[in-house]
Nucleic acid binder design. Structure first.
Length: 133
RNA sequence: AACACGCACCGCUCUGCCGCCUUUCGGGGAGGAAAGUCCGGACAACGCAGAGCGCCGCACCACCUAACGGGUGGGGCCUGUUUCGGGCAACCGGGGCGGGUACAGAAAGGGUCACAGAAAAUUACCGCCUUCGUUUUGGCGGAGGUAAGGGUGAAAAUGUGCGGUAAGAGCGCACAGCCUCCCGGCGCAAUCCGGGACGCGGACAAACCUUGCGGGUUGAAAUGCCAUGUACACCUCGUCUUGCCCGGUUCGCCGGGCGACGCCUGCUGCUCGCGGGCGACACGAGGGGGGUAGGCAGCGCAAACGCCGGUCGGCGACGAUCGGCGUCAGAUAAAUGGCAGAGCCUCCCGGGCAACCGGGAGCGACAGAAUCCGGCUUACAGGUGCGUGUUUUUU
RNA sequence: UGGCCCGUGGUGUAACGGUAGCACAGCAGAUUUUGGUUCUGUUUGUCAGGGUUCGAAUCCUUGCGGGCCAA
């Protein structure tokens, strides 16, 4: 039975880390989600991945709609994060999941987006791994 | 029964699995609007000798409330409808049932009132009247009086009648209307009713203003503490005085106190006024720059509040009291969710006299706490109760 | 969270409470072989609702939208 919990240590809260993620991070799209990530040294974090989710006010004017989408993304991530952990093989990452769609999509489609993100991950991190540090 | 309106209330439920926040480890975990941020308070920091000016808000009366621009009751004004009375009619007056109302002062002062109109507030264009001059008896010109009549306009100098007059005029009188004041009566009061006196004054204060009342400023990114970290680096401005007293003295002066002068600064809008600091190689004030972007308290447990029921007072908002129950979210890139199933609701289709049955559709309205309360405003699928009105059916 | 400010054609901007202008753009026509330039004509607007007023872009109020400032 994989660990489905989602504790406070797994959330990205530091404002400094967030601005570094925006400035230095890599990104790709796994519709309906835009993914931004940044590899971190192990000393800076406790959890393998610190994640933050976001839904833009531009397309969803009420707080209710934004909260709902963020909850669905977070839920999909919670249920499949162990698959991402396997791909990472011990490295630490700061991760941002931004909702990209223009209307509210049901949970099943958002879950598919998260799975796509995990599928697309190895190529990106393999490249990174081959680079001499 | 259906529909419409008004008021009040509710505003999906349950089970399983996987999760989240909080916790005293038992448990607890979004709303009627949590929203808009339109008002009022609590709370906090700073300020507070005093006076004047300014600024902002409120504005019929009484009451409720911690307070309010909120609420309740009452009054005035405007308005719809109906009925009764008067009238040829237009319309006027009384009553019933509603609806609206930011409703102090225009008789303190200035200001504005487009176009039209003679005139928009000490009004003479036409007209009317008196008189003078001139002339060809019509007429023309001058001086003056006059607001009864006249087109206009949103608004025209209170209306009708009689008297009066050269013609007229509230110029006088009668009745009516309005304003201010006084007296009497119901009422706490606004106000209403009756009587009397002075008077006749267009509108606009949701433009300036006046009067009365209230308001210190800033707001949880307030504020206090801990940790981390950095730069008395930079710029601008000011100050190099002076009288008296005391002490010391190498007789040059030095130190201290009080005052004057100058500068800076505070009294968070300004002035007076009052206070604080400094006066020389350092000090003061201001600007600007750098660092931190973490945590704790504030933060929801109290002589308090809420809910339910009863009693009492009040027309009512509400208050007093008794009993029972409860402690009711505290996150911080920000918890309160996801999936599955069942029920409920609404709509559509089919069947049935009907209750209802079967199938399908609806990510099930508006919407997410951010210091906390009391209001206001705005959004809202559907449902429940009460009241009123209309229509149909039955008795 | 708290406070402050602003909404006028497609764009930028005017208008003591009294007929909503101006410039550019758009459209049509003229000039030109054509296009441009130039000239003439013309369409489109006071963010929305309510109130005060004879009359509202202007005053008041409620909502909507946008912007700014604060450890």
């Amino acid at each position: 039975m994989p660990d489905f919990s989602f504790t406070r240590q797994e959330r990205l809260k530091s404002r400094t880390l967030l601005s570094r993620l925006f400035k230095e991070g890599h990104s790709f799209v796994a519709y309906p989600i835009r993914v931004a990530w940044l590899e971190l040294p192990a000393s800076e974090t406790f959890a393998p991945v610190q994640v933050v989710v976001s839904a833009p006010k531009r397309h969803f004017k009420t707080a209710v709609a934004r909260n709902l989408l963020k909850r669905r993304i977070r839920e999909a991530y919670r249920l499949h994060k162990h698959e991402l952990y396997e791909k990472l093989a011990g490295r630490r990452v700061a991760l941002m999941l931004m909702y990209l769609g223009k209307e509210e999509l049901p949970f099943a489609e958002i879950e598919a987006g998260v799975l796509k993100m995990i599928r697309k991950w190895p190529e990106q991190s393999a490249e990174k791994q081959n680079e001499p540090s």
